[in-house]
């Protein structure tokens, strides 16, 4: 792997929520990085802390319940957590922008789509209103919507079209990093494919880096260069797509793959990961996965495993992670899609 410029680097990030029922440890000691031009897939179950992580990057988590305990988020070497809200505003939408899960709810129903796209342009560039509106029309065409629909309201669009509008909105200022929080979950399968295709094309066209949150491993296989598997607020495995798909070491990652039906296999039985994600306000001691792990030993219950770099750039947080010779493990395994 060549030494690429790190666009975003998260170090030891810990985010808690103070609630009536106690402290919720949403994100614990999280480390991640995104290289310029690359796509990172953030995979995990609901409640694993994915959305908290990216909302912390944007600094749009509501502050009273959430507390950023610790850590740094370095964007081109500058710590976003140390920036004032005013400085953050000039980064949001211009340098880093975000697409939310549900296009039905991420567009404001009482403003026209044109107005909503041009909002970011007006905020971050010094063009007049007419020019901004024109640029908004250009963006609509880029995502495959006729420009004369800029005066329509969100309820006049279908789900897939709405997500296109949301993408246009996020890319309006040509950001360097795009965060997409499950951008296709709320869409029909056929529309999903179209939207993914569009995102892939635009990513190349604008040379945007991307963090893609998903729990769909198919999407990861299709679009991501790097993958981070999150469990209970931690990254349990991180590596290139090939590392994670072909040489997964963490029991949780392996479990995720056995949950997917395999078209090429005669054995149609799925093996689910037993149990539920632990309550984040009452996490187990030791390795947080030990309550559901088939390989757990006594040590797992008491001690927290440290992160092991099993091969260059491939990290696993498990006592049983085995450093391996990258060259020798080129076994051909089908990519589950």
């Amino acid at each position: 792997m060549s030494q690429q410029e790190k666009l975003l680097e998260i170090k030891n990030l810990t985010v808690h929520y103070a609630t009536v029922d106690g402290t919720v440890r949403a994100v614990e000691n999280l480390n991640l990085s995104v290289d310029a031009g690359q796509t990172l897939g953030l995979v995990g179950e609901t409640g694993a802390g994915k959305t908290t992580t990216v909302k912390t990057i944007m600094r749009i988590l509501p502050v009273p319940p959430s507390i950023i305990k610790n850590g740094e988020i370095l964007y081109k070497g500058e710590d976003l957590l140390k920036k004032s809200q005013k400085e953050m505003r000039s980064i949001r939408g211009e340098k880093i922008s975000m697409i939310f899960q549900d296009p039905m709810t991420s567009l404001n129903p009482v403003l026209t789509v044109g107005d909503q796209i041009k909002e970011a342009i007006e905020l971050h560039t010094k063009v007049n209103k007419r020019k901004a509106f024109e640029l908004a029309g250009d963006m609509l065409e880029t995502v495959g919507i006729k420009r004369d629909r800029a005066n329509d309201y969100p309820h006049q669009f279908s789900g897939g079209m709405k997500q296109r509008v949301v993408i246009a909105m996020a890319l309006a200022c040509n950001p360097e990093l795009l965060i997409a929080d499950e951008p296709t979950t709320a869409l029909d399968v056929t529309i999903q494919a179209q939207v993914l295709e569009l995102m892939k094309r635009l990513k190349v066209q604008y040379n945007t880096s991307m963090i893609m949150i998903t729990h769909d491993l198919g999407i990861v296989a299709e679009i991501c260069d790097y993958v981070a598997i999150m469990y209970a607020g931690e990254v349990v495995e991180y590596g290139t797509r090939e590392d994670v798909f072909l040489r997964a070491q963490h029991p949780y990652t392996k479990g995720l793959f056995t949950c997917i039906p395999d078209m090429y296999s005669d054995d149609n039985r799925l093996i689910p990961i037993r149990g539920l994600m632990p309550d984040p306000s009452n996490l187990p001691s030791g390795c947080k996965f030990h309550t559901r792990c088939d390989y757990k030993c006594e040590r797992c219950e008491k001690e927290e495993p440290s992160v092991v770099e099993v091969s260059s750039g491939h990290y696993v947080k498990c006592f049983f992670a085995l450093p391996q010779n990258v060259a020798s493990s080129k076994v051909s395994v089908k990519m589950p899609v």
Binding site: K55, M58, I60, Q85, M88, R89, S90, I91, R92, G93, E94, S97, M98, F100, Q101, D102, T105, S106, L107, N108, P109, E119, A120, L123, H124, V166, M169, A170
Partner: peptide, 14 residues
């Protein structure tokens, strides 16, 4: 609502 987060994510003033 998400569209409020979206507006904030655009860098809009509070």
């Amino acid at each position: 609502a998400d569209y409020i987060s979206t507006a904030r994510a655009k860098g809009q003033v509070e």
